[in-house]
Design a protein around this nucleic acid. Structure first.
Lengths: 156, 156
DNA sequence: GCTTAAAACTTTATGCTTGAAATTTATGCC
DNA sequence: GGCATAAATTTCAAGCATAAAGTTTTAAGC
């Protein structure tokens, strides 16, 4: 009988911790993104979305359909259209028509694009290394495991 | 003598883990943002950036200068201009001129804005609760601690 | 063969975001 | 006072992002 139910639904400490976690998550991600964005801009006159598309295309030498690309990147269809447009204009990617289905397009890297991405990726890895240098192996594993339980499919 | 040093500088496992962490971080944040964005849109016909501005203004009843607002939110000056413009158009915020400095503006919530934010914030907390429901208190603490070491000032 | 539905994209409208340039106001120095 | 410089904002151009609507092509039923 020592427990008294509060009249107002005061926020549970757990609830406060969850909010705090969300804010930290947001800050860490935004800071990192800002860092990467600036380095890509200054060093390669490029952007994060473009890098993401290049990285995905690089994993599929045969190319990808626009819809596959947007699925992989988890962005909207219309979004991919614009980014690919710019990559094509820069000569880093090219579109081919798909045999037997004239609705679809297949996008893939050009040789220039492949070479350019290789350089960007090498630097990118070094940037990530420096940004996360503080964490040791056990901490990395812990965090990877916990983050894996956020934003899964089963989340509804 | 069973170890052979590879000729190419193969990426260290630590480096791979760091990259993996970054990708997980990004996924968790984007998934959560997408969830919040959609709920704000459907439930309040609003957006995350607007919510962020409202939340900040709510903490400072006396109002804030545009520059203070952009510092708090860590976004560019020009960005804040547009968001505040829309909030003012919606009647949720208002601008007052600053005594003694005609360059500056002070932005604060209207009564309508304060009431609207209160409703949004209550729901927002519930959304966060549901999104992070999987993690127990110890896990929350662990993650908050580790995230606190990413993206700090001292990062250079 | 014709109709209808579905699929693969693109287009459009709107908003967020940045970085850079422009504008207006304030401050310091001679 | 007059002028350079700095500060507080806004404006602008470009790019990214979504949702919704539109286009063309393919597939399915009958």
């Amino acid at each position: 009988m020592s427990e008294v139910k509060p009249a107002a639904p005061s926020p549970s400490p757990l609830s406060k911790q969850r909010l705090r976690l969300w804010l930290r998550l947001l800050r860490a991600t935004r800071t990192t993104e800002a860092e990467l964005r600036e380095r890509l801009r200054k060093g390669h006159d490029s952007t994060l979305p473009r890098f993401d598309v290049l990285a995905t295309l690089n994993r599929y030498p045969g190319g990808l359909r626009m819809s596959e690309l947007s699925t992989h990147l988890k962005v909207s269809n219309g979004n991919v259209t614009g980014i690919v447009e710019r990559l094509v204009a820069e000569g880093l990617a090219e579109r081919a028509s798909v045999e037997g289905d004239r609705r679809a397009h297949r996008v893939r890297l050009t040789e220039t694009g492949r070479a350019r991405f290789a350089r960007m990726a090498a630097e990118h890895e070094a940037w990530i290394d420096s940004i996360f240098a503080d964490l040791d192996e056990a901490e990395l594993d812990t965090m990877i495991g916990l983050l894996g339980r956020i934003g899964q499919e089963g989340q509804q």
